[in-house]
Amino acid sequence: MRNIAMTRKVDSLGRFGMPKEILYTVDIRPGDSVEIFMDAEASTISLGKYIGQACKFCQSTEVLSTFKNSLICNECKSQMIATQKDKQNQQPKEVMTQLLLVLLEKYPDATQQEYSDMLRIPIARLRNLCQTITQNKNNEKEIKSNPGINSSILKRRG
C-alpha cells in the first residue's frame, strides 16, 4: 500500500475536506457512509467505507456472503454465476451458423425475432450470422464459376 500525505485545515466546527483522489482510491462515493476508528494510544484516526450488513447490489439483508470486501446475497451471487456460465456456453460462430441454416430450412416463414428467440441470441448477432451465410454462399458461387480451383478448397471454405 502506498502512503500518501496531505494536509487540510480543520474548521471551527471540526470539519475538514477529504481529497477526491483518496476517496476514489478507497471506493467512497458521494452518499456513501464512512466509519471512523480511533486509536487513542497511537493518537491516530482511521476512516473506512462503511460496508453495512446489506447486499452491495440489491440492498437485501438475507443470507449474505463476503466477496472482495463486499457483501452479496445468494440471489445476486447466483445471477452472477448464471451470467458467467452463459458467457462460457456461447456457441462458436460456425455452430450457430449451422443451427440457423437448419432453422431457415425448417421454418422458412419465421421472422428474425422468432429465429433470435429460437437460438436464444440477440437480433444483432442473428443478423451477423445471416451476413456470414450470405458471404459463404457468394464464395461458393465464385469458386464453382472458376473451374481451375480444386474442389478441396470448396470443402475448407464452405
Rank of each mutant, 00 (worst) to 15 (best):
residue 94 E to Y: 08
residue 101 L to G: 13
residue 74 N to H: 14
residue 121 I to E: 04
residue 112 Q to H: 06
residue 45 I to C: 01
residue 136 N to F: 14
residue 29 R to C: 02
residue 133 I to L: 11
residue 116 S to Q: 03
residue 94 E to I: 08
residue 127 R to W: 10
residue 45 I to Y: 07
residue 34 V to K: 01
residue 11 D to W: 04
residue 22 I to C: 03
residue 104 L to H: 02
residue 59 Q to D: 08
residue 132 T to R: 04
residue 115 Y to R: 08
residue 80 M to T: 11
residue 108 P to K: 05
residue 155 K to E: 14
residue 90 Q to T: 14
residue 132 T to K: 07
residue 100 L to T: 05
residue 128 N to G: 06
residue 121 I to P: 09
residue 107 Y to S: 00
residue 65 S to P: 02
residue 80 M to K: 11
residue 59 Q to N: 04
residue 1 M to W: 04
residue 153 I to Y: 10
residue 6 M to S: 14
residue 8 R to D: 03
residue 48 G to H: 02
residue 7 T to V: 01
residue 45 I to H: 07
residue 58 C to K: 13
residue 69 N to K: 03
residue 51 I to M: 05
residue 12 S to T: 13
residue 24 Y to T: 06
residue 68 K to R: 15
residue 94 E to H: 03
residue 75 E to H: 05
residue 88 Q to Y: 11
residue 50 Y to T: 12
residue 155 K to C: 15
residue 28 I to G: 01
residue 131 Q to T: 12
residue 95 V to L: 14
residue 61 T to C: 06
residue 118 M to F: 03
residue 51 I to C: 09
residue 129 L to D: 09
residue 5 A to E: 03
residue 102 V to D: 08
residue 28 I to F: 14
residue 64 L to R: 07
residue 125 R to G: 09
residue 94 E to Q: 09
residue 47 L to H: 00
residue 132 T to S: 07
residue 29 R to W: 10
residue 155 K to S: 15
residue 74 N to W: 12
residue 96 M to I: 00
residue 20 K to R: 03
residue 18 M to L: 15
residue 38 M to Q: 15
residue 32 D to C: 00
residue 114 E to T: 01
residue 54 A to Y: 04
residue 95 V to I: 12
residue 156 R to I: 08
residue 58 C to Q: 14
residue 5 A to G: 11
residue 96 M to A: 12
residue 137 K to M: 07
residue 56 K to G: 01
residue 52 G to R: 12
residue 111 T to N: 05
residue 98 Q to I: 08
residue 25 T to D: 11
residue 48 G to C: 12
residue 10 V to A: 01
residue 104 L to I: 10
residue 39 D to T: 05
residue 12 S to W: 03
residue 67 F to R: 08
residue 153 I to D: 05
residue 146 N to W: 06
residue 5 A to W: 13
residue 2 R to N: 14
residue 121 I to W: 01
residue 61 T to G: 14
residue 38 M to N: 13
residue 109 D to S: 15
residue 61 T to Q: 09
residue 156 R to S: 12
residue 131 Q to H: 06
residue 64 L to V: 05
residue 136 N to Q: 06
residue 51 I to K: 05
residue 157 R to D: 10
residue 93 K to F: 13
residue 146 N to K: 10
residue 135 Q to V: 14
residue 44 T to K: 05
residue 32 D to P: 02
residue 75 E to I: 09
residue 141 K to V: 15
residue 143 I to N: 03
residue 17 G to D: 08
residue 99 L to S: 11
